[in-house]
Amino acid sequence: MAPYESFNLGDHVGDEPAAVEANRKRLAAGIGLEPERLVWMEQVHGRTVTVVDGPLGEAAEATDALVTGEAGLALVVLTADCVPVLMGDPVAGVVGAVHAGRVGARVGVVPAAVEAMVGLGARVERIEVLLGPAVCGKCYEVPAAMMADVEKHLPGSASKSRAAKPALDLRAGLWAQLAGLGVGKLGMDPRCTFEERSLFSHRREPGTGRLGGVIWVDPS
């Protein structure tokens, strides 16, 4: 049922719990893992990073980044305009999933996740990052003071909307931040969640579903 008909994975947006559970099981089957091997987050727009070494049984409490060195453990980040950041060091076998909305990006959740990965044996220059679909800098209008504040903490994020009003491009800011850290490879899915009707967007349709970004180390 609308607005959740397109594979909603969020269990906190008013969708039928049974439908969300079924979708999560479909996701697990699609990547060849048991449902309990998927680790979810209780996302709160902060900078807390949780290191996990096995199934949790429930969502990691009050965190916006997950990091693991455990093979066959899939880390899931849910978004509907915020930036899903998927990171991995293929040599060390360490991966991370980050929920980077305006607040989290501003307070440094991504560098905190990189630091946690390094603590598990990753090397910054080997880390590969994908910035997933998110609201783009032409669609994310904000007050001028907010734009200036985020730009101060996340340089490169200031933008202008199509109406030439103050806006934010969080992916541009995160790209610059990660490059500044010395991350080895950066990639980006260029789709804008607000513009692409096949993707969930809270700004376009408040109360909508959530996309899932998933990363794991193949146990085989």
Rank of each mutant, 00 (worst) to 15 (best):
M1T: 11
A2P: 15
P3I: 05
Y4S: 01
Y4V: 13
Y4P: 03
E5M: 07
S6P: 03
D11Q: 07
V13A: 10
D15P: 07
E16G: 05
E16A: 15
P17Y: 01
P17H: 02
A19Y: 08
A22M: 12
K25D: 15
R26M: 05
L27M: 10
L27E: 09
A28C: 11
A28S: 13
A29V: 09
I31L: 13
G32V: 15
L33M: 11
E36C: 01
E36L: 04
R37D: 15
L38Q: 11
Q43I: 12
V44H: 06
V44E: 01
H45P: 01
G46Y: 08
G46V: 06
T48R: 14
V52R: 10
V52L: 03
D53W: 08
G54S: 09
P55S: 08
G57R: 06
G57M: 07
E58H: 06
A62T: 13
L66S: 10
V67L: 10
V67M: 05
G69I: 10
E70T: 10
E70Q: 11
G72A: 08
L73Q: 00
L75Y: 05
L75R: 03
L75S: 12
L75H: 10
V76S: 00
V77E: 02
V77L: 04
L78W: 03
L78Y: 02
D81H: 06
P84T: 02
P84D: 05
P84C: 05
L86F: 04
L86T: 02
L86C: 13
M87F: 09
M87N: 11
V98K: 03
A100P: 15
G101A: 05
G104Y: 02
A105M: 04
R106K: 09
V110L: 14
A112V: 08
V114A: 10
E115K: 07
A116L: 14
L120M: 03
V124P: 00
R126G: 10
R126T: 06
I127P: 00
I127H: 06
E128S: 11
V129H: 00
L130I: 08
P133C: 09
V135P: 01
C136M: 09
G137M: 06
C139W: 02
E141R: 12
A144Y: 05
A144W: 04
A144R: 14
A145I: 08
A148Q: 14
V150M: 07
V150H: 08
E151S: 09
H153C: 08
H153Q: 15
G156V: 13
S157M: 04
S159E: 00
K160Q: 15
A163R: 12
A163Q: 15
A164H: 04
P166A: 08
D169S: 14
L170A: 03
L170T: 10
R171S: 14
L174R: 01
W175T: 14
A176I: 02
A179V: 12
A179D: 14
G180A: 12
G180L: 09
G180C: 14
G184H: 03
L186S: 11
M188N: 11
P190D: 08
E196F: 01
S198R: 06
L199N: 05
F200Q: 11
S201Q: 09
S201P: 08
S201H: 03
S201V: 01
E205P: 07
T208E: 14
G209K: 00
W216H: 11
V217Y: 01
V217S: 02
D218I: 03
D218H: 04
D218Y: 02
P219L: 03
